[in-house]
């Protein structure tokens, strides 16, 4: 779910950079208030790699292909660190694999960064009382939020000359194809947290 170059007008791409920079600034300011921000850096570095490599796991589902996003996992595991980690991962995906555009990096940062923060909020809200349910909801919910943002941005940036109805129909199929992914990502977050709870509880995210 990466916007490539040339899909949205230049003004939207620039606005995406502005909003994404604002989101990153907010995240960094919140990270600075943590008691020991450096303690999270190793985990953020390793999860950035996982996020970067996850885009290679693609399942062809017409009209496009479905690949792992892991925005929910990033949000739950890293909290505010998820935003800079996702931006770094997206830049590497665009530069090395051609997944997503360089001009649309800001918009792609929003499409995956905002859902990560939603997942973080959900986990912190309900993770203490219902950890399994919160993990499932965070993973699946992040995909749903990312789909909604992607859908809205694509339609907002659609050139007026093109057939809007055809694009909406293609987007609807695209969204339907991603619903199993939402469930899969929910299960990924759930399994990851359960394994960590059993093997290495120190790596579990705080609630």
């Amino acid at each position: 779910m990466h916007l490539p170059d040339g899909i949205v007008p230049v003004e939207m791409a620039l606005a995406g950079y502005g909003l994404s920079a604002g989101l990153a600034a907010l995240a960094l300011s919140r990270i600075r208030t943590l008691p020991d921000p450096q303690a999270e850096v190793p985990r953020a570095a390793m999860l950035t790699t996982v996020f970067f490599a996850a885009s290679l796991v693609a399942v062809p589902v017409p009209p496009a292909s479905v690949h792992l996003m892991l925005a929910g996992l990033m949000g739950v595991m890293l909290g505010w660190f998820a935003v800079p980690a996702i931006l770094v991962g997206l830049f590497l995906q665009a530069a090395l694999f051609g997944h997503g555009g360089v001009t649309t990096l800001g918009l792609n940062g929003l499409i995956l960064g905002v859902p990560a923060l939603v997942a973080m909020g959900l986990w912190r809200l309900a993770g203490g009382r219902w950890p399994d349910l919160a993990a499932l909801g965070a993973g699946a919910g992040a995909v749903v939020v990312a789909l909604a943002l992607f859908f809205g941005i694509v339609l907002a940036g659609l050139p007026t000359e093109l057939d809007g109805a055809a694009e909406r129909a293609a987007l609807a199929v695209f969204v339907l194809a991603h619903l199993p992914l939402a469930m899969a990502e929910g299960v990924i977050v759930l399994v990851t947290l359960r394994v960590l709870r059993r093997v290495e509880p120190r790596l579990l995210p705080g609630v």
Binding site: P4, D5, G6, P63, A64, V154, L162, E167, L171, F174
Partner: peptide, 11 residues
């Protein structure tokens, strides 16, 4: 020339 579908495409 740009070909696009469901937010994906190439130029």
């Amino acid at each position: 020339i740009q070909v696009r579908q469901a937010g994906h495409g190439a130029t």
